[in-house]
Design a protein around this nucleic acid. Structure first.
Length: 700
DNA sequence: GAGCACTGC
């Protein structure tokens, strides 16, 4: 095996780590950083006083890299070298190098924030800026100060991001380790194409006719465009004169493709044949396709974003960042010199593209993360002042605090409650963990466990859609008892219970258009949740799945009531005369039940007066996805709580209202009085909206 | 009456 570039830097790395608590490593693709950094530190004595932890954003990466390192060191996986991912801990007393997902390290941090078992923590692939990595970066900044004498932190990042990470850690040193990529020639378009689909098609055909052999990887935004391009490419390739060029195989590659279709990209092209792989950004980092020499980059990606002022998600096509563009180009240089065709002018790359992708922390609902941070009980912890590499907006943090307050996980002073502490233990979004705790009180924990597990796996349950022929779920696919009309949560529960009654038969899944893997995942999640519930809630509880339908629970009243408590921030009230809804909260939104819902109308064709929803998603219109009917009396206490809410106190104290951009603070209001006034203005608007709401209700 | 990129505890 050729010597990895990083090994020439061993001395330099050890010297730098010795003298600094934090070091940033810029490790380009193929540098060997993921497998070698831990071994270098191990060789130089850093495992004598503790374990070396290496975090990865993805499970497969944690497992495969651990396997490689164990092999290189000639040890059994799980002994000196091990890994820990959800549902699977392959470490032992002997383990001194441990690969783990960043989510697992956060969980460990919850039971012991000092992470004393570790002498070194390496945050690998930090430039991907996953939500978990960003929280870990903030925690590491505190931790290195606390454990100055016995903890080293290494952060690997991309060229464009290294300086910023270094500044965040008091200008810590940056080491650059070259990679082993072959040079990639970048070719730009002179202008933006009107249709990037047509433009990709033309470029692909040009390559096929003119360029020597080598596979082509095309980055598109989503399944629809991928399917269109695959069809068009097939047509056009067949239309080429026979013998004028080599054969072609055209393969789609995206996340909702069944696994057996995904692995087709791993079998190499037969002789005298070129492969075209039309992919989403799954091929950017998650899957590496060998044999690629040409990359076509549309310059776009589909991104999910959360709007904290409306509580809605949307899925938008946005421009990629420079880091992403370079990552895509790099996919052409893994086996030999390559070419990357960018379907945009170079001026767009230089002037329009952001240097780095907007981190997930600025695009997500933060309720879960804020609850997590609050329950760590860090000293002087005002969440609005927590030191993030890229702070989320104040609005986003306040949105999270309000959500947490409404579901009783923090009190009116922003302190974590007993309930909140238990919720933080559960690997679920706060609405679902609150539902579980309430269900335990109401004697329907078993059902709630199933609902929460099904919702965790929901997107993996259904097979890939095939051009509009497939509905979400068949309206009455199975022999379900009455009651599923109460809502999607209830139907999910009944589906799982049906599967349970046939002893988790995989054929049953196939017969009912459910992905076996998704259902198995649900089963794992449910088991894990039951175990955690048994640990945190005292007293006996019933977690077994029901063997038969409970006749006395046809209306699922307790379960729906538990959902209402858990989803206190996700309630909606139907309009008087039609089936549109208005969300109940500070800024009411007009929304509709998603057409895929199984929620049933009454004899007048009207939907229930009150519902909970799992999420709001804006596509063609704002929709509530996964909806369940609730009763008006259950809503009243929540409305009262909404009235009492004072967001100023929830963060845990503040001195100034700040807005930060690129790490620099811009003080908007210096004195507390000014801040209070600014917030009061908004509060009075909220109050007015509440008054109108209550008046309307009284009229009914 | 619509359609969803990718991860993870």
């Amino acid at each position: 095996m050729a010597v990895l570039p990083i090994l020439q830097f061993e001395e330099k790395i050890i010297e730098t780590v010795k003298q600094n608590p934090v070091v940033v490593i810029i490790g380009e693709t193929g540098s060997g950083k993921s497998t070698q950094l831990s071994q270098i530190l191990h060789r130089n004595g850093y495992t004598k006083s503790g374990i070396i932890a290496v975090t990865q954003p993805r499970r497969v990466a944690a497992v495969s890299v651990a396997r490689r390192v164990a092999h290189e060191l000639g040890v059994q996986l799980g002994e000196e070298v091990g890994y820990a991912i959800r549902f699977e801990d392959r470490t032992s007393e002997k383990t001194c190098i441990k690969y783990l997902t960043d989510g697992v390290l956060l969980r460990e941090s919850l039971s012991g924030p000092e992470l004393n078992q570790y002498s070194v923590i390496i945050l690998d692939e930090a430039h991907e800026r996953s939500l978990n990595t960003d929280i870990l970066l903030g925690l590491m900044k505190r931790l290195v100060k606390m454990r100055l004498s016995n903890l080293k932190v290494l952060i690997t990042s991309a060229t464009l991001d290294g300086e910023k990470v270094s500044r965040f850690f008091s200008n810590c040193p940056i080491l650059t380790v070259p990679g082993k990529l072959f040079p990639v020639e970048i070719l730009y378009c002179s202008e933006r194409p009107t249709s990037y689909l047509e433009s990709s098609l033309k470029t692909a055909l040009d390559i096929h006719v003119r360029e020597p052999e080598g596979d082509v990887l095309i980055f598109m935004t989503g399944q629809d465009d991928i399917e269109k391009l695959v069809r068009k490419l097939e047509e056009r390739v067949q239309g080429l004169d026979e013998g004028s060029c080599m054969d072609a195989i055209i393969l789609p590659l995206h996340g909702s493709l069944p696994p057996e279709m995904q692995v087709r990209v791993f079998s190499p092209a037969p002789p005298n044949c070129r492969r075209f792989i039309v992919a989403t950004n799954i091929a950017e980092t998650s899957l590496t396709v060998d044999g690629v020499v040409y990359v076509i980059d549309s310059g776009y990606v589909k991104q999910r974003q959360y709007n904290p002022s409306t509580g809605m998600y949307s899925l938008d096509v946005v421009q990629i960042s420079k880091v992403q563009a370079n990552q895509r180009a790099g996919r052409a240089g893994r086996t030999c010199r390559g070419k990357c065709y960018r379907l945009y002018p170079s001026i767009v790359y230089h002037d329009d593209f952001l240097d780095v992708t907007v981190p997930e922390i600025q695009r997500s609902s933060l309720a879960g993360s804020v609850l997590y941070l609050k329950s760590l009980d860090l000293p002087d912890m005002d969440i609005l002042k927590f030191d993030f590499l890229d702070p989320p907006s104040r609005e986003s943090l306040e949105d999270a605090l309000k959500q947490l307050y409404l579901i009783d996980s923090i009190d009116e002073n922003g302190l974590v409650t007993q309930i909140g502490r238990k919720m933080a233990e559960l690997p679920l979004e706060p609405s679902l963990s609150r539902t579980l705790l309430e269900a335990n009180e109401l004697g329907c924990l078993s059902e709630a466990l199933t609902v929460a597990a099904m919702l965790s796996a929901e997107t993996t349950l259904l097979p890939g859609r095939s051009k509009g022929t497939e509905k979400k779920r068949k309206p009455t696919p199975l022999d379900l008892p009455d009651g599923s009309g109460w809502g999607d949560h209830i139907q999910l529960l009944q589906i799982y219970e049906s599967w349970h009654r046939v002893d988790y038969d995989s054929r049953w899944c196939k017969d009912n258009d459910l992905q076996v893997r998704g259902m198995m995942f649900t089963k794992d999640v449910r088991k894990q949740l039951s175990q955690i519930m048994q640990k945190i809630a005292k007293g006996p509880m019933e977690v077994q799945t029901n063997k038969r339908w409970k006749d006395d629970q046809q209306d699922y009243k307790n379960l729906r009531r538990a959902l209402c408590v858990g989803y206190a921030n996700q309630l909606a009230e139907r309009m008087i005369h039609h089936n549109g809804y208005r969300t109940i909260g500070y800024k009411p939104q007009l929304v509709q039940v998603h057409p895929s819902s199984v929620l049933r109308t009454d004899e007048d064709g009207l939907l229930p007066n009150y519902v909970v929803y799992h999420e709001l998603i804006v596509t063609s219109r704002p929709f509530m996805r996964n909806v369940c009917a609730i009763e008006m009396p259950w809503v009243m206490p929540i409305s009262k709580k909404l009235d009492k809410l004072n967001v100023n106190k929830l963060s845990g104290g503040f001195d100034a209202l700040e807005e930060r951009t690129n790490g620099e603070s811009l003080v908007l209001a210096k004195k507390e009085t000014e801040v209070v006034k600014a917030l009061d203005d908004r509060d009075s608007r909220i109050q007015a909206a509440r008054d109108r709401f209550l008046a309307r209700k009284a009229k009914k």
